[in-house]
Design a binder for these strands. Structure first.
Lengths: 192, 192
DNA sequence: GACTCCCTTCTACACCTGTAGAAGCTACTC
DNA sequence: GAGTAGCTTCTACAGGTGTAGAAGGGAGTC
């Protein structure tokens, strides 16, 4: 992806995160990217193309973020590591996460955006692998359940009621809080 | 709420669910409600007022849906009951659920919509009560975690990857699938 | 230098949206 | 029947938005 294109896609992510899908207009992206009016429109003639670029950008950044928390023997460490990742998605990665949720919702009525549904495929694969190694039966399904649980935590903290109740993301308290919650989820699946 | 107002609010819910927040325009709601152009605009002069009405309507219908699944002694039954509720939110209540997600996301950058964050307050209260009765320590927080997990399942199935993988909502398979997943969550919290 | 190609910027325009106010209608009061 | 209050429908309009195409500019080739 050329520089300009990435620049525009990133600006689009920012716009969607801060103003919602409704705020995503060619001119808003121009302004956000600090480019002259018409630039976004020139690169992505249609709005659909712009959204697709944005979705691709999100997916791209996702896969770039490869984590390796695969030590099944120490579930406490695993919980802590996951909590840190989750917390980063609520702080430095906040906009990306919000934009992703917006796109996921959009994909509900725009099937061509379904690529974004591969989001978390990595996490799911990792979960499955771990569970298999640990000899948990029905690892595939259990892995998906685990990821759904943990995603539920993220959604709650970021856009749900947890945004009011839970500790401020980025703080040690937040990490601790997330760690215990994730540890609970792991206990559910692994049984200990 | 008068008839017309409810009619408009309901149409607005449908529009948001099917076309997203971006599709929510006065005229679209008119069309959806089968009312002459200008009606929605007359009742809700500003778009903000319309959204607020829509959020209120969602909250209203939520509280109308009082469930009583409070038999802590039988976690299997509890799981099954919850699964049925969850499944109904993905079938008959699908649009409402989607509209709620859209509004939650909107509330992220529009604090005045935060009322919607009280969504699930009932579920959380119920969870807390149950956990207290069962003698689980830190019932408040654990309850919130439990609800976040279960909401995660819902989100996954409805707008996440589960929309592709999980069994078709409304089928017995879906209920079974949800039941085991919820049972897992309960096991995590209750320890058995 | 003239030409060409490609990237970038500008301009145009039909259509959509939010919002306001005027006009019309209905039912009820005197 | 005249009047009136309140709901409902229509119309207007300023601005925003999606999209297309024209204009500009700068590097590379002959």
């Amino acid at each position: 992806m050329s520089d300009r294109l990435t620049q525009i896609a990133d600006a689009a992510v920012h716009v969607v995160a801060t103003r919602g899908m409704r705020g995503l207009t060619h001119r808003a992206v121009d302004a956000q990217a600090g480019l002259p009016q018409g630039s976004t429109s020139a690169y992505f003639r249609t709005r659909k193309a712009l959204i697709e670029a944005l979705v691709r950008r999100l997916a791209e950044q996702d896969t770039a973020e490869v984590t390796d928390l695969v030590d099944v023997t120490d579930l406490d460490a695993l919980a802590k590591g996951s909590a840190q990742v989750l917390d980063s998605w609520m702080t430095t990665g906040r906009e990306r996460t919000l934009a992703r949720y917006a796109c996921l919702l959009e994909a509900t009525h725009h099937p061509e955006l379904r690529t974004i549904l591969t989001h978390g495929a990595q996490s799911r694969d990792m979960a499955r692998t771990m569970l298999e190694r640990a000899g948990v039966p029905d690892a595939e399904r259990q892995g998906r359940t685990l990821v759904a649980f943990i995603d539920g935590l993220l959604f709650d903290r970021l856009v749900g009621a947890g945004a009011l109740n839970a500790p401020q993301p980025g703080t040690p308290e937040s990490i601790t809080d997330l760690t215990t919650a994730i540890r609970t989820a792991l206990r559910a699946i692994f049984g200990h």
